[in-house]
Write a protein that binds this DNA or RNA. Structure first.
Lengths: 339, 339
DNA sequence: TCCTTATTTGAAAGCGCTTACAGCCTATAT
DNA sequence: ATATAGGCTGTAAGCGCTTTCAAATAAGGA
């Protein structure tokens, strides 16, 4: 079954040079005369030789591959992120190994080790649960440990440490602005719905609370609801909810659509009787009717920027990058709000 | 920056055995006495040794890794597939390298080569555009070529060849049944909407046409519409469409929701004046209102089955598997049909 | 107890590539 | 013409692991 693969010795023999010379032309070393380079290249082209990555790796300890770790890829945001990350990485000649770790730190740690064991050149951790700010401490030591071996980029998470670089959305401002807008349009009983205690979820809540405070509206804990991340579950939870509200800010679009389903069930007019703002601007945001006003977190920018930074540390060894880069969000107005 | 990594020699020295013995216990060879195994294991645990995959690969030419190739991962179906594939692979101790190739054969070929150059143990190609049945010939030679090196599994595609194994949905039957049901409920002008000429799209159309024929309804080409895979685009295309129709069968849920948006715009009652059936049973199917009747293609079964088969050829060298396995679909009834 | 056979173990030869080092050859300067 | 530097090329030593083969040890039988 296995084809016999030709190796550097074959090429050397055919081109009548030493394997060292072949290696040099393959790696574009400048210490080769144009004549021999041509000669060797001709042979390589002819027989279609590709260096064995294992042997290369053994010497160089690298494979031009970066590891991407996501909690799950079965989620619109994550899959988009992976898509754009890998797309951008490819333009720099890097391939990617994917790991879906689940949401538990234990699984993450195991996957990080898996990726490291594959000798990736860098690690990209996507997912807001990689937190670590004062309020929301989580065990991120394994990330710092990983960073001793390869540069680590965290997308939408905040991890301090040497050789760790973060790219995050300006979630606070995004939600602050959206909430303020709701208030300007007369809403005072605004529900904040979230399904997680992740780094970004916390920032979103902060934006929500800040907006209320700045408009002299008291923050009421009963208006900050924790829900299950499923449309029907959200709808049902809301149906059982006793507090009155006339607007919803949700930490993702699925939850927001759940609120919309609630409105539909209660026959509330949207946006007149209930305004709704989602997050992520994903495809479900335009599947519903009326379509969902949502906050677009510019995943493309996010991913491209992340990769660019990463490459600059891998290739140029630039280690004095700013630790954290913030990407702004856009409010996309549609039918579930008056603005 | 780089930590000095301990290797098999260190372990051998610490455990006072030869590297051969260490290698044997690491690989679970049975030719090691329980006593020495314990001794070596203890050292390994203590210092946390992991074999260098490159060195392993150099000898074994494998990395316990399979390559997964999808046209795009920024698509609910694909990302789900990747998720379940990698999840199942993990249970067998395999990791995965991901490639997003785009839809062009050229990109696919390049990515296949990339994955092969990483010495994956097998290749999984997801995506219905890997066709190759009589009607829809496409250049799949590079797949057969790849199959000379490693087993290849094709999910939702049909590629003939040695060492190539396919797992496909029974799309013909699924659409046949759904269409028949629409007919039974009195619909005769049924629109079939698709965005691609992929292998499954063709099967779906076949099911649609077969159902019409079996109920003595003439197949009208103007009722088979090619659309752009975007909800709004579909809606607009339908608004400009001149033929009359009272039901829609769509080749995915996004398109179906587009039809629903059309109905909303035209103020048609769904399902009374327009019935709609989607495909994939994805999250957008429950985001809309009324919720979408959709065909669930059991992606989990599909992926698990694929991996199981693949493993049996990798590990047990079973090459006499049936070439193609067919997975049935389920019709999930919701609000856009009367059934 | 001694010899035969089975079971463990170790030494060493690769796997294919990179790269430090040395050697060779040509070109320039004396 | 001869010494000298500099550009190319080749030799060989790893990189860390697997595995064959032979040696060593343990076990079993007479």
């Amino acid at each position: 079954m296995k084809k016999d693969v030709i190796n550097i010795y074959d090429i050397a023999e055919m081109a009548k040079v030493s394997i060292a010379t072949v290696s040099r032309v393959v790696n574009g070393s400048d210490k080769v005369s144009e004549k021999t380079r041509k000669k060797v290249m001709a042979v390589i082209e002819e027989v279609g030789y590709t260096p064995n990555v294992f042997a290369q790796g053994l010497g160089l300890n690298t494979m031009h591959t970066v590891g991407i770790l996501v909690p799950t890829i079965s989620d619109i945001y994550m899959s988009n992120a992976v898509y754009y990350l890998q797309e951008k990485l490819r333009t720099y000649g890097y391939d990617c190994i994917l790991g879906c770790s689940g949401f538990e730190p234990e699984g993450k740690q195991r996957h990080v080790n898996m990726l490291l064991s594959k000798h990736v050149d860098a690690l990209i951790l996507v997912g807001s649960t990689y937190a670590g700010n004062g309020e929301h401490v989580q065990d991120t030591d394994y990330i710092r440990e990983a960073a001793q071996n390869v540069p680590v980029c965290v997308v939408n998470g905040n991890v301090q440490g040497e050789n760790i670089y973060c790219t995050v959305n300006d979630d606070v401002k995004a939600v602050y602005d959206a909430t303020s807008k709701l208030i300007e349009y007369g809403h005072e009983r605004i529900l904040y719905l979230t399904d997680s205690q992740s780094y970004s979820a916390i920032k979103k809540r902060k934006g929500y609370e800040q907006a209320l405070e700045d408009h002299d509206i008291p923050v009421r804990p009963e208006l900050e609801m924790h829900v299950v991340n499923h449309m029907h579950a959200v709808r049902d939870q809301l149906l059982e909810c006793k507090v009155a509200f006339d607007a919803v800010v949700a930490s993702n679009d699925e939850i927001a659509v759940g609120a919309l389903k609630y409105a539909f069930k209660k026959e509330l007019l949207v946006p007149e009787q209930l305004s709704i703002v989602g997050y992520n601007n994903s495809s479900v945001a335009i599947a519903c009717e009326p379509e969902l006003t949502s906050i677009d977190n510019r995943v493309v920018d996010m991913c491209y920027r992340t990769v660019e930074r990463l490459i600059s540390v891998i290739e140029n060894n630039e280690t004095d990058l700013e630790h954290k880069v913030v990407i702004a969000c856009d409010l996309i107005s549609r039918g579930t709000t008056e603005f």
